[in-house]
């Protein structure tokens, strides 16, 4: 019973952590740069989940004020994450532009091949 309670109480946190470490794993273990950026994206979205989870109140409604409701979820994480998403896509675009330039310069987007090409010189 206690275990079941822990699972229900912390399931969001655990999935958040799983997404976070998967993002970390992809970034560290994969040499392909597009894959690395996807991993960074996973990491980033897990942080969104981390912020939004504690703001939710069971039985609450979205924070749009109305006389019909009295319990609202916490609006502040929403604001922070809204900003984070938009900045995130800006950095993603920058990273992808760098990948395109690297591909033009070296003809590959694999880290290992770039390093190998450097050593040949």
């Amino acid at each position: 019973m206690d275990l079941l309670y822990q699972i229900v109480a912390h399931y969001n946190h655990w999935i958040t952590i799983f997404l976070m470490v998967s993002g970390l794993y992809i970034v560290v273990s994969r040499g392909n740069m597009v894959k690395k950026l996807v991993g960074l994206g996973l990491f980033q979205t897990s942080v969104y989940l981390l912020y939004l989870t504690p703001g939710k109140i069971l039985g609450g409604t979205p924070p749009v004020l109305s006389p019909d409701f009295s319990v609202y979820s916490n609006p502040l994480p929403h604001v922070l994450i809204l900003t984070a998403i938009v900045v995130g896509v800006a950095t993603l675009a920058l990273g992808l532009a760098l990948v395109v330039r690297i591909n033009e310069e070296f003809g590959t987007i694999e880290e290992d091949e770039i390093f190998a090409g450097d050593e040949d010189e």
């Binding site: 979205t45 969104y48 989870t53 703001g55 939710k56 749009v64 929403h78 998403i85």
Partner: peptide, 17 residues
Amino acid sequence: MIVLDAVDVAMTEAAVG
């Protein structure tokens, strides 16, 4: 995010993400 009551964030994530 919609389930977590963050409707504005959900719209942005669907459009941007």
